[in-house]
Design a protein around this nucleic acid. Structure first.
Length: 785
RNA sequence: GGUCCUAUAGUCCAGUGGUUAAGACUCCUCGUUUACACCGAGGGAACAGCAGUUCGAUUCUGCUUAGGACCACCA
């Protein structure tokens, strides 16, 4: 090592060392307790994002800490299921998925994924994420498909799954059902038009933003308390332009002062319509095709927006518009493509959720949330659920729904466990009842239906590698970001509850976001910050150092200066280690019979740090562990202790020197271990360079976490604090006089102070370069040359 | 509109019912070359506002303001 620490070079070397030694391989024979982590599988799309670097670093801090205490099960997966992958593969291969068979398209996806996966995973390895990459799954691989299909079959048998024709949230762009969790608000400009309906030969004014749904109008609502319309109740209204009659009904949900107080119910404009139509048992008029075009009338074939425009023109021509104004309002869109959603009646598969809301909240409560308040978000979401989980998707790429339906008697046929994973479009089945051929289900499962099984998937993978190895549910930990509490965390809890009657993990840690000048980073903002570039410029340790800068769950502003600080820390650590071992050449790794008092006091301080840092890591407060260790190292160890022992090390021989050497060795090793989870590369480098020959373990990351020596009963000795106080005063005096720290002095201190540190007089003399120490009023005199 | 989070130097970020309110970057002064100028010593600089609880509030409570997240509304 030179004077300056070269992160890039070292990290490259260390990375290879870990790979060669299989440092992070899960040890199935270990007698230690297993700490199992339900690693988030990232979407395999493009390069690693700074947000990923942030949250994966945070979970890795915990994984590495636990690895030094327990046996860590830390798999790695990629989420290759679903629309983003489908889109990516279509683009990459310049094809349309619907123009080929499902099996062919899945194969193409798998081929494309295989090509890009290694590069993608490399980013995580470069960051030092310490997964066992051999315990790898893709959410579309055979094992995942099997687990996912088993889940479907199990829930079907438990009568938790049903099929129903129902107006569901529909994306006309992706042409598939979506779940409530996939909705995203979007502000949109819209025309708010007040139309002239007719009732009792008079105008009945109704406002709407969706005139294209006029042909689907099935009723008009007014509030029973609304005096204006009382006489119209149960009469008929005529729909403008289309000239058919609909009933005027009273409904308490109609708000008197909203719009004109009258509203039209169409099939279906929004979920309010869906509910209203059900409540009043009205016959829906379905006018939308799955591709978002209109069915009937002369507007047939027009897309929603085109139809709206045309109908408005025609309304205007016929003088049926009373008023029109521009408004902005929020509309629900599909989070994957931003297309406004519609309600379209199709036959879909559902998992029952609404019947177990309170039980799911109870399950959520059993999980330890870090930070605690994140549970509220879970609870709010579950309380707000309005639909069961629609799990079928009209897509090509995904886990096939493993059922056949008899064409004759509609009997549902399930596959046997040995057949899984199965594609019902590839395998033919006959109805056991009527012997007729059954039709394979064409739909695939919602991606969350599969990724909500990650504990079971990872567990199955490990079992396939080692027959004796069953990773139990609940896992120890789920790490994830807060934006997917309502999806990933929620669905996983729901699935484990329905399958195992268990919580999926004991703890859940939720990381915050990376912000830029206080604002949330978004893909649209582009953000020129690429982890890859940062790794090249500053190294993974520095990036991780930054990621350890905010407490769990908090957002953190990205600032380049924090990486510079990290880099400085690396340099300091590297240099301090160099100093220590320069002075340990004649040290035989022996514990001295008698420790010098100041060494003992210093080790006591170190012990307090160990205790605190351990507690911090155990409760996921890695940022505090890091801050405390960082401060101790720089201030206590480097600036104070090292200065204090310099002279003794240089000039003394025998027990006094050995005591200092022992203390330096032990404290440096301890500090390295405490900071190793945060900065794995440099700590490994120092360990390999200096400690390896005397320490047993091959890698610092599988070495024992430092034990605190249980000083509870021992009273804390404040002598060292008093000592440092004196030292600090002397330094102050030297600075004021603009003298060198090495300048020789005569030190006078009060009786009380003198008595307090009387066992450490030699040390204070050494570190302050005092020629003489006297009692009296505090005074620093300089010895002139 | 509802729920939740956040508010500390120019910037980022700790922490506390009584503290000289910590650290980093920046700024100023000085020092230093047998670990380190990516250094050392020292200095300057902060508890959003208003009320309440309290002997005492930056810390607890309420409100206000600002920012953020999630949800709802979208006639």
């Amino acid at each position: 090592m030179g004077k300056q620490y070269n992160a890039q070079e070292t990290e490259d070397k260390i990375r290879k060392f870990w790979e060669k030694n299989k440092t992070y391989k899960f040890n199935s024979k270990s007698k230690k307790q297993t700490f199992s982590i339900d690693t988030p599988p990232p979407y395999l799309s493009g390069k690693m994002h700074i947000g990923h670097a942030f949250s994966y670093s945070q979970q890795d801090f915990i994984a590495r800490f636990q690895r030094m205490k327990n046996n860590v099960f830390y798999p790695f997966g990629t989420d290759d299921n679903g629309l983003p992958t489908e889109r990516y593969v279509e683009k990459e291969n310049k094809i349309r998925s619907k123009s080929m068979s499902r099996a062919d398209f899945i194969n193409l996806c798998l081929k494309t994924l295989k090509k890009m996966t290694p590069d993608f995973i490399q980013d995580y390895k470069d960051l030092g994420i310490s997964c066992d990459y051999n315990i790898y799954y893709s959410t579309i691989d055979k094992n995942s498909q099997r687990v996912s299909q088993q889940s479907f079959i199990d829930l079907y048998k438990k009568k938790e799954i049903y099929k129903k024709e129902f107006p569901t949230l529909w994306c006309p762009e992706c042409q598939t059902t979506i779940a409530q969790a996939e909705l995203e608000d979007k502000e949109e400009e819209s025309l708010f038009t007040t139309l002239r309906f007719k009732a009792d030969n008079k105008d009945l004014l109704i406002a709407t933003t969706r005139p294209e749904l006029l042909p689907a109008c099935v009723a008009v609502f007014v509030n029973p308390k609304d005096k204006r319309y009382k006489n119209l109740i149960n009469k008929k209204a005529t729909v403008p332009l289309f000239n058919f009659e609909v009933p005027i009904l009273e409904d308490e949900s109609a708000e008197i002062d909203k719009g004109t107080g009258v509203l039209m119910i169409c099939s279906y404009g929004d979920k309010y319509d869906v509910k209203s139509i059900n409540r009043h048992k009205l016959e829906p008029k379905l006018i939308l095709n799955p591709d978002g075009t209109l069915k009937q009338t002369e507007y047939k074939g027009l897309r929603v927006k085109q139809a709206r425009k045309k109908i408005l023109e025609d309304l205007k021509e016929n003088n049926l518009i009373e008023e029109q104004k521009q408004i902005t309002h929020a509309i629900n869109t599909h989070d994957k493509c931003g297309t406004p959603i519609e309600f379209i009646t199709t036959e879909q598969w559902f998992i029952k959720l609404l019947d177990k809301k309170s039980k799911l909240i109870k399950q959520g409560k059993k999980v330890n949330w870090y930070p605690k308040y994140m549970f509220k978000r879970y609870e709010n979401w579950v309380n707000g659920l309005e639909w069961d989980w629609s799990i079928s998707r009209e897509r090509h790429f995904g886990v096939p729904i493993p059922v056949w339906e008899c064409k004759e008697c509609n009997e549902i046929i399930l596959p046997n466990n040995e057949e899984l994973p199965v594609d019902p479009l590839q395998t033919k089945k006959q109805c056991p009842k009527c012997n007729k051929e059954a039709k394979g289900e064409e739909k695939v499962l919602d991606t969350w239906a599969t990724s909500s099984m990650t504990p079971q998937i990872a567990s199955a993978i490990s079992l396939s590698k080692d027959k004796n190895l069953k990773i139990k549910i609940p896992f120890s930990l789920r790490p994830q970001a807060h934006d997917i509490i309502r999806t990933w965390a929620f669905y996983t809890i729901a699935k484990s509850f329905m399958h195992e009657k268990e919580i999926p993990w004991e703890d859940i840690m939720i990381s915050g976001y990376v912000t830029l000048s206080g604002e949330k980073m978004s893909k649209s903002k582009g953000t020129g910050i690429q982890p890859k570039k940062l790794l090249e410029d500053y190294g993974a340790d520095a990036l991780r150092f930054w990621a350890a800068g905010s407490k769990l769950g908090n957002d953190l502003d990205y600032q380049e200066k924090d990486l510079i600080t990290g880099k400085k820390f690396l340099n300091k650590l590297s240099n301090a280690s160099k100093f220590v071992f320069m002075n340990l050449e004649d040290y035989k790794n022996q514990k001295p019979k008698q420790l010098e008092k100041i060494d003992k006091l210093f080790l006591q301080k170190l012990d307090i740090l160990v205790k605190s840092a351990t507690y911090r890591f155990e409760t996921y407060e890695y940022s505090k562990a890091k801050a405390e260790t960082e401060k101790f190292f720089w201030n206590m160890f480097a600036d104070n202790y090292m200065e204090i022992v310099k002279k003794r090390i240089y000039n003394q021989t025998g027990p006094k020197k050995i005591s200092a050497q022992y203390t330096l060795y032990k404290s440096l090793l301890t500090i390295l271990k405490l900071i190793a989870p945060i900065m794995p590369f440099i700590t490994e480098e120092i360990y390999q360079t200096y400690f390896k020959k005397t320490e047993k373990q091959d890698s610092i990351h599988i070495s024992e976490w430092p034990e605190s020596e249980n000083l509870e009963n021992e009273k804390y000795d404040t002598t060292l604090d008093a000592f440092i106080d004196v030292l600090s005063k002397v330094r102050q005096a030297k600075t004021k006089k603009q003298k060198s720290m090495k300048s020789e002095i005569i030190l006078t201190m009060p009786e009380k102070q003198y008595e307090k540190i009387k066992d450490l007089l030699q040390d204070i003399q050494d570190v302050t370069n005092a020629k003489e120490i006297k009692k009296g009023n505090f005074k620093v005199e300089f010895v002139e040359e």
